[in-house]
Design a protein around this nucleic acid. Structure first.
Lengths: 247, 247
DNA sequence: ACCGACCAAAATGCATGCAAAATAGCCTCA
DNA sequence: TGAGGCTATTTTGCATGCATTTTGGTCGGT
């Protein structure tokens, strides 16, 4: 029942480490630690987060912890019920749709800006990653494929040269990460060939620096990911948690 | 020197009201009040925000106030220097460019989604606002023009049917509001005819429900606004505050 | 046995207190 | 006169304490 006992997947689960106190303010360390802990999906949707327990686990007092919770609430990772404490935010299907749509809009923007600013060397880098990713695809090496996939998207994001965009994108990406961890693995296989073809188009538009095209492809790419993710959630309704009221 | 004395424009300035205590948590009221106060541009860029003073002004203790400041920092409205308190965040020209770019991306997304979901009745509403706005343009009634302009953009945003998008857009819009308050007024006159023509295209694409076109027009519309705003800031460098270190 | 009221235990919201860091003022000295 | 260092004051960061609200459990009534 305690937070540290909720660890489910042994492998990726990282304990909610006590704050080191080595550097920076307590508030920042708590914020970063809690955020990482939540993003990694160590707590099921809707789980209560009692202050007292967290205080003991992290070895700090309630004041900085409460500050961190307010920030996490404003980031959309937890929700605060008045006089009733913090809960892990549970995303509905509609929330997930909205998040994917916004992520798609941000990727589209990144693609558009990247086409205006990317250097030939950076394009060459993306090409290299793309071919490596294709090789992973042919090898059916899903983990390598995922890693390169993410690197490509991040490279486009970086080439856009907009730190506000990067921050915002990362923020939304975090919210989806808990869903993605579960949805990506199995599900993507159905869509793998399709996704690979979309990435061919992404590279092509980027090479021609066609911002409008790249923008549109990236947006549709994300929408397809959304459909895949939601289909997975429908088939495996338990995995994201949401152990709401048991019948 | 005190915050309540920094009120500059008499007209739009709203005093930082003491918290009523009528409803909701102190934290939320403080957060909303401070945010509004900052958005309205009542404090110059870079101004220090001493906790003690704010506490006395709003009649609360430091704990909920500090919570609100952390949230405002995560929203990008203030910046917190370790052990040195909170300052009103000063936006560089690069920050403003990035904000306009992201806003443009979000508007483009809103346009795209709106084209998929908007009803005929909603389109009719936008048409009406558009013609009213055109009338304001012909009358050279700038305030009415601005009000309708904003209503149109908000109507498209609402028609997109994505609350995450709405929240995010509103957040960025807040950050720019301080800049916009100053930049819009005079500067827009140069661009007025051009902006009006862009709005003709916006309405046209919306009527044809051409998501790609609307998306592109809205993005360029925002980029043109950015150029105009930055040009204004170059000509009137003092108005946004930034009374950093006096030479 | 089920439902609601009542009471104890715990949790939240906020205020206050204390130590550490930063700032400002002052004095000394070149 | 101006620069540098020392001290007093202020300010921040965090911990703790208290009042209020919620929660869990028990008891009495139907």
């Amino acid at each position: 029942m305690a937070i540290v006992d909720e660890v489910v997947e042994g492998d990726r689960a990282t304990l909610l480490a006590p704050v080191t106190g080595s550097s920076g303010s307590l508030h920042d360390e708590i914020l970063a630690g809690l955020r990482r802990y939540l993003i990694e999906g160590n707590l099921p949707d809707g789980a209560r987060i009692p202050e007292r327990l967290l205080c003991e686990t992290m070895g700090v007092s309630r004041t900085p912890l409460r500050e961190a919770l307010k920030v996490l609430a404003s980031e959309g990772l937890v929700e605060l019920l008045p006089n009733r404490g913090a809960r892990v935010r549970a995303f509905t299907e509609n929330d997930i749709r909205e998040l994917f749509e916004v992520m798609g809009g941000l990727e589209a923007l990144a693609g558009r800006l990247a086409c205006e600013r990317i250097t030939d060397a950076e394009i060459a880098g993306v090409e290299q990653m793309h071919y490596d990713m294709y090789a992973s695809y042919m090898r059916r090496d899903l983990p390598a494929y995922f890693a390169l996939n993410q690197k490509i998207h991040l490279a486009i994001l970086a080439a856009a040269g907009n730190s506000v965009l990067t921050t915002t994108y990362t923020n939304f990406s975090s919210r989806l990460q808990r869903v993605r961890y579960n949805a990506n693995r199995e599900n993507h296989k159905d869509r793998w060939g399709e996704a690979m073809r979309e990435h061919e188009q992404i590279l092509d538009a980027l090479q021609r620096r066609s911002g409008l095209e790249l923008s549109d492809i990236l947006f549709r790419h994300l929408q397809n990911k959304r459909v895949a993710a939601l289909r997975y959630l429908d088939d495996h309704p338990s995995e994201v948690g949401d152990q709401g009221q048991p019948a």
